[in-house]
């Protein structure tokens, strides 16, 4: 099991924390949600892998060709583009759900050199429409988070403490979407691919979820590719922003 050290030591963490501070300036958050109140080192024993960068080299899928990008550990790269430009397909290629060209690395891991399911356990895609198959929320969760970490995450996402025992059939689409983010983190990924993770959420919940995602990504040092279409959201969460123009990804100022 890979251990996970102090986040502040990691390259990229200091640069991205600037965003968190900037964000805190225009709204007030309960103390429990602030990054400073995240679990201490002792509680991190069951923490996530993290700390490796995600690198795409000449990835080709659908109309996209020669997509090359580097996402540092703990960095959020926002990806935008018109409908049908291939954002979701690119995420599917990175998660190795569709045949595609090019090479993808997560740290020392090479996509084609490890079994498909092992790669996807590391590079975890959270789709826009999430699916659930067990009766209760708790049955879907992975082993990576202890009770305390789960409760903190639920609070931060605006859920009641007993949410994990709710019946999945009674969840709204917005609840499913937020709980799917928690589900993904509970499986100990090494990188996150988010496909419009706040698409079904109202304004306040969107801000709350963004904040939790930013904190989590930084805390676990996960390279994160975040598909978003709202310029305001991109301004709030992105460390970098790329836009799909034609067949390429173009870095935005």
């Amino acid at each position: 099991m890979r251990q996970f050290g102090a986040v502040a030591d990691r390259p990229g963490y200091r640069t991205v924390s600037r965003r968190s501070l900037q964000w805190c300036e225009f709204t007030t958050w309960p103390a429990a949600l602030m990054p400073s109140t995240l679990p201490d080192t002792a509680a991190r024993s069951s923490s996530l892998s993290g700390s490796a960068a995600l690198h795409l080299q000449d990835v080709a899928i659908g109309t996209l060709t020669q997509v090359t990008a580097h996402i540092a550990a703990g960095e959020i790269l926002c990806l935008s583009g018109t409908s049908g430009s291939g954002k979701s397909r690119l995420l599917r290629a990175i998660a190795d759900l569709d045949p595609h060209g090019g090479e993808i690395h997560l740290g020392d891991h090479i996509q084609g050199k490890m079994p498909g399911h092992s790669w996807r356990r590391e590079v975890m895609l959270v789709p826009a429409e999430t699916q659930w198959w067990h009766d209760t929320v708790a049955e879907h969760l992975g082993p990576a988070m202890d009770e305390q970490a789960l409760q903190q995450a639920l609070t931060a996402l605006g859920f009641a403490p007993d949410t994990l025992h709710w019946q999945v059939s009674r969840l709204s689409s917005g609840e499913k979407q937020r709980l799917a983010l928690l589900r993904a983190i509970s499986h100990r990924p090494g990188a996150l691919l988010l496909d419009e993770p706040t698409a079904n959420l109202d304004g306040d919940t969107t801000l709350r979820t963004e904040q939790w995602l930013q904190d989590t990504v930084r805390y676990h040092a996960l390279p994160t590719l975040w598909v978003a279409h709202d310029p305001a959201q991109i301004a709030r969460v992105a460390d970098r922003h790329m836009h799909i123009e034609g067949h390429r990804l173009v870095q935005q100022p």
Partner: peptide, 19 residues
């Protein structure tokens, strides 16, 4: 969609299609 969501969470194919 359900099978693929299970794959996305890192389940082997036998588990994703088990039911």
């Amino acid at each position: 969609a359900l099978i693929e969501n299970r794959l996305m969470l890192g389940q082997p194919w036998q588990e994703a299609i088990g039911d």
